[in-house]
Amino acid sequence: MSAKILTITSGKGGVGKTTATANIGAALAKRGQKVVCIDADIGLRNLDVVMGLENRIVYDLVDAVEGRCRLKQAMIRDKYIPNLYLIPSAQTRDKTAVSPSDMIRLCNELRADLDWILIDSPAGIERGFKNAIAPADEVIVITNPEVSAVRDADRIIGIVEAEEKGSPQLLLNRLDRDMVKQNNMLSAEDVVDLLAIQLLGIVPEDKAVLISTNKGTPIVLDEKSPAGQAYRNIARRILGEDVPLLDLDKGSGFFNRISSVFGSGDK
């Protein structure tokens, strides 16, 4: 085995990097892949909470980098899905505790007995982001259909391209189809048109996500949630399956759309 390293980043904060990392990790692990999620947001640790593993932390990323523990000891096994691990970040240190070369060394050490290494990047374009991006084989840029988030995503894509990591893939999070229809939100087409990179998936706005992150249970385990379905599809696409994007458009399929065209006149 030689793991592939995926870094999930966004530029802007609060667009869903941590949620996406936890759920893509869980969905990949559910499909039998051996996955570790690394929280690279040193000082503002979150991923452990979203994955519901906060109370199991003994060692963290900085301990591993500074040699206070073996790397294996910092890996926490998930409580729902076997094959899924978390390396939490340190809460009491800051971004400078780790350097880009530390991250590369650590990931190379992990590669041998894993399928995927997912890195949850901090917001911003400073040291923490550079740490997260340094070891990446591929980068996923996540954005919301919001002008400010898209602007930051564009900046991030420029930096990732300059680092010669190849063109990143786009994950559009929290799209509300009703708001798009009423012309109150950027559409997926608007965003893709501007950013001009490959669209990996669209995650619809779904209140169940907030509940699941508060509970520390990945939304991908919820068979009924549209967001969970979207993340499962994204994981399949990452594994190389050809899953059409239309699949996500549950509830507004072909017939629905025709009727909404006819219906719009008498509203």
Binding site: S99, S101, R127, K130
Partner: peptide, 15 residues
């Protein structure tokens, strides 16, 4: 100079 050349210098300096 290409990106990796300058990036490695930048990283070495930031270290």
């Amino acid at each position: 100079l290409k990106s990796p050349d300058l990036a490695s210098l930048r990283n070495a300096l930031s270290d």
